[in-house]
Structure formats: C-alpha cells, structure tokens
Simulated assay, not measured.
Amino acid sequence: MFEELRVPLFVTAGAVTGLGLALLVLAVSGLPVRERASATPGRRRSVAGSQRRLKQLAAGVGVFVVVLVVTRWLVLAAALGVVVAFWDRAFGGARQERDAINRVEGLATWIEALRDTIAGAVGLEQAIPATAVNAAPSIRPSLNLLVDRLRVREPLPDALMKFARDLDDPSADLVVAALILNSRLRGPGLRDVLSALANSARDELDVRRRVESSRRSTRRSVQVVVGVIVTVAAGLVLFNPAYVSPYGTFEGQLVLAGVLALFAGSVFWMRKLSGVEEPERFLIGSLDTRGTA
C-alpha cells in the first residue's frame, strides 16, 4: 500500500521544495519594510520577530524536504519540519523572559532616578528628560520617544500613555498610571509613591530572577532529552535502516504518527511547566480610546 503513495509523495516533495526555495530566498534577502523614522520600539520588535519567524519557517521547510528525500517518511519529515519551524514556541521562552527581566530592572532604576530628581523641587516635565539620558538600554528608546513628545508640547498624560504602549509591559502600567494621576491632579506625595513603586519593582525583579533560575534547568532538560532522542533516531535511520524498515509501510507510518503525537504532547506539557504567564495589561483599553501616535 505504501508503494501506491510514492507518486503523491514525490509530487508533494516537489511542491514543498519549490515553496522552501522561495521562503529561503525571502529569508536571506528579506522583505522590503517601509518603516517610519519614528517607529516605536514595539513595532521594531514586531518586525524583527516577523523576520525571525520567516527564517525559521524557511528552515522548517528545508528540513521537511531533506528528511522526506532521505527517508521517504512523510510523517517524520512533517514532524521535524514543524519542530524546526516553531522551535521558539516549543523550546524557547528564555529570551522573552530575559527581556522582561531587563525591562523591569531598567524600570526600577529609572523610577529611583526620577524620585531623586523630583526631590530637588523639579516637575515631571523637567525630571523625565533629565533621567532619560542615563536610562537602561532596555527602556531608553521608549523614554527617548517620551522626551520627544514632551518637546513638541504633547500633553503629559497622553505622552505617558503612549510611553506605556511602547514598553508594552504589565509592570510599567502601574508606574505609568501613578505618573498620569499625579500629572492630572498635581498632588503631593509623588516621591513616596515612586519609592513604593521602586521597592515593588525590585521585589518583583528578585522573584522573577529566582523563578527564571529554577526554570532554566527545566528548559535545558527538555532540550537535552529531545536532542538525545533525535540523535538516536537519526543514527538508526542512517546507519541501521533495516531496524526501522517497518516504519516505511503505511501501518508503520500510522504507528509513528501516534508515537510522535505522544512525544509532542509530553514536550509541550514540560514547556508549559517552564513557561511564565504574565498578567494582563490594564492600560490597553484607555490607550485605544485615546488613539495612537
């Protein structure tokens, strides 16, 4: 029965090969992106993420074609192609967590600098540009945009709301909300509020670092297990094909699909255990009602 599937397999391999070559060309050359000079850091991260996903998709298609040509196992080729194409979602997460930790650390440092600057009887409109110069690289682009908006006489509450949009971080929403309230009410006690927010950010930073340290070992264990299994399976296919020849039949492909499904379920379950669920942002609705830059 598997012999009857050879022609459809070859047709599929040819079509996917052409698609893979096209995606590979796009991944290498890149798409022409027309980006405004005032593009927000969030948009830049989105463009970089799209390009990275395009490269991973091209790599996944290439792996699918190579495995299909070498083994002629459609199920295995599709599974490996999907793993390579969605590697970040299946085994990633560390980069996003590191970026979030860096943003929280930079935000805490900036809050402390803002508090100390306001102590000299300086208003928010003057303190924000003064503290943006020495801000951490993780939040400096967003702070520079905030300073530019203040220089063109944009109202401080609107500029702060867009600052929260640029950061796109739940921890920043709390800080921005406090600054917006003070900019509208002009009440006393801003230094005390900033001190409390800085302490809260430092506590959150310590907790997230401890959690990341404990979950890093889980991610590494998942990657090691997957790497060992893939290496052993590849060695059997290449150096002992007679041992795995039953998987070349139609029934063998069905059995292999079941085995890979169970393996994928266990990997995603471990991925969920090592992931981090961040709280929802609460300034999104207010930002959407006021419009965008």
Rank of each mutant, 00 (worst) to 15 (best):
E204P: 03
R208P: 14
L74P: 00
V259W: 04
A293C: 07
L256E: 00
P155A: 09
S195D: 06
V232R: 10
R151C: 02
Q96K: 14
P188T: 14
I284W: 02
P170L: 14
W73H: 00
D169V: 15
S183G: 06
V228C: 07
E125T: 08
I229Q: 12
L156Y: 08
R215L: 13
A22P: 10
P279G: 01
G14A: 13
V83W: 04
P32V: 11
V25A: 06
V63T: 13
T17W: 15
V75K: 00
L31H: 14
D88R: 14
V147H: 11
V232L: 07
S46D: 08
L287D: 06
A39V: 11
F239T: 12
A130Q: 15
D288V: 06
L150W: 04
R215E: 05
D206T: 15
G189H: 09
A177T: 11
R210A: 02
S142G: 08
F263V: 04
T292L: 08
R209G: 08
V66H: 04
W110M: 08
F268I: 01
S221F: 15
G120I: 10
R186D: 05
P129A: 01
F10I: 15
V70W: 09
V211K: 09
S266A: 13
S213P: 01
K162R: 07
V226G: 05
L156R: 08
L256Q: 00
S183C: 12
V82C: 10
D116F: 01
S245N: 14
A100K: 07
N102S: 05
I139K: 06
L24C: 14
R89V: 09
L21A: 07
W269H: 03
D169N: 07
R216N: 11
S217C: 01
